[in-house]
Amino acid sequence: MNINFEYHNVEASNRLEEYTKDKLEKLYHKFQMIVRADVFFKTENTSSDKTGMICNIRLSVPGPRLFAEASHEDFIGSINESVSDLEKQLTKKKGKMMTY
Rank of each mutant, 00 (worst) to 15 (best):
I3Y: 03
T91G: 09
E6R: 13
K96L: 10
Y100A: 12
V39P: 07
L24W: 05
S84D: 15
S60H: 12
N45W: 01
S78I: 06
I54H: 07
G63F: 06
G77S: 12
Y100K: 15
I76F: 10
S13D: 12
K93D: 09
I3R: 00
Y28H: 10
V10N: 11
M53R: 14
L16W: 15
E17I: 06
K50N: 12
I54A: 09
D85E: 11
G52T: 02
I76V: 13
K88V: 15
Q32I: 05
G63N: 09
K93H: 14
Y100C: 05
N80T: 11
S47Y: 08
A37V: 06
M53G: 00
D74T: 05
F31C: 01
I57H: 07
L27H: 02
Y28M: 01
K50T: 13
F41T: 00
T99M: 08
K88G: 13
N2M: 08
T46C: 01
K94A: 12
G52C: 05
F31Y: 14
Y7Q: 04
A12G: 11
A37N: 06
K93Y: 13
S82V: 00
P62S: 09
T51G: 01
L16Y: 12
N2E: 13
K92H: 13
L24E: 02
V39K: 08
R36D: 13
N45I: 04
V10S: 12
Y19H: 10
Y19G: 00
R15E: 14
E6H: 11
E25H: 08
K21D: 09
M1Q: 01
N14G: 11
C55A: 10
